[in-house]
């Protein structure tokens, strides 16, 4: 009806499609194929069937990295579901100055993980601020090796992830809380419901779909954890590399001087299998949320 030629839409789409094919779809197809080969950075590339996957099943380095990643998710996800919600409830009420507080709580999101990691490396050093304060308060007698013990390093990284994620998920919760009818809460207040009770019996049921969404988003993010560990350990993943995550391990296997590209691709597919469940769930939830909001 507009007298438009058939290829006009494709001209509009061309740059985006070119980029998407080059750096997304072709590499994804390539990864899938390479996972069944013995390709290395410097040669190889013959199909070897399921050899890579057999190797994965017996690779202690992989299982260790997977264990670290799973532990990471198990700790970080519940905290990132609950704490940002409490924070959102705290700033949901329109008291004077609340907009400034929202901005303050979002600030860590804006900073890059490198900056945040370096700041926390400094604060958590054996002679750093946290150890000094804990010593001064007589909580500990000797400084804790936050960065040089692999378990403590992982815990420190988890703390950083949570600290940096608070503001991001707070904003998602705020959008959900804005849809909670104010008169419901008002009525509960008049009823004399205590704040804690009001939170459990009114707020939580109303934002439950958002809690699931935040859970899936933070799970995907935690499954891919890398920068925290790399920066806080100065690239070493702790003593003996004991604090490696899955992405850390994939990078090491696949992108070294003679990277084992085939094997790294198989590992990547395992990571993909882990995240895709959460991704599909979050897409479905968002569509459903949008549907109910419209």
């Amino acid at each position: 009806m507009l007298g438009r030629r058939w290829y006009t839409p494709w001209l509009f789409l061309a740059p985006a499609l070119a980029v998407a094919v080059t750096v997304l779809w072709a590499p994804l197809a390539n990864t899938t194929v390479l996972a069944f080969t013995d390709a290395r950075a410097l040669g190889g590339g013959a199909f070897n069937g399921l050899d890579n996957f057999t190797r994965i099943s017996a690779d202690t380095g992989f299982w260790h990295a997977l264990g670290n990643t799973a532990l990471y998710m198990a700790v970080v996800v519940p905290l990132l579901i609950v704490l940002p919600l409490l924070l959102a409830v705290l700033v949901a009420r329109k008291v004077p100055g609340v907009a400034a507080f929202r901005a303050v709580f979002y600030t860590p999101v804006v900073a890059s993980m490198v900056v945040v990691g370096l700041i926390f490396s400094w604060v958590l050093r054996s002679d750093g601020l946290v150890n000094q304060v804990l010593t001064a308060l007589h909580v500990i007698t000797e400084p804790l090796p936050f960065l040089t013990d692999s378990s403590l390093l992982l815990i420190s990284c988890m703390a950083v992830t949570v600290w940096k994620g608070l503001g991001y998920y707070m904003v998602i919760y705020l959008a959900a809380l804005a849809n909670v009818p104010g008169d419901v809460l008002e009525a509960a207040t008049v009823d004399g419901a205590a704040p804690v009770r009001r939170f459990w019996s009114i707020t939580v049921p109303l934002v439950r779909p958002t809690m699931v969404l935040v859970g899936t988003l933070s799970a995907i993010s935690a499954a891919k954890v890398f920068a925290e560990i790399y920066i806080m350990s100065d690239g070493s993943a702790g003593p003996g590399g004991q604090a490696k995550s899955l992405v850390f391990y994939i990078r090491e296997v696949g992108l070294g001087v003679d990277g084992e590209i085939g094997y790294a691709s198989a590992l990547s597919l395992v990571l993909f299998a882990g995240t895709i469940v959460f991704s599909l769930l979050s897409l479905w939830l968002r569509r459903r949320n949008e549907g109910s909001a419209a």
Binding site: A20, I220, K224
Partner: peptide
């Protein structure tokens, strides 16, 4: 495209 994490395809 949104469900393909960059980390999965970074080697390729």
């Amino acid at each position: 495209a949104l469900i393909v994490p960059f980390e999965v395809i970074m080697v390729s």
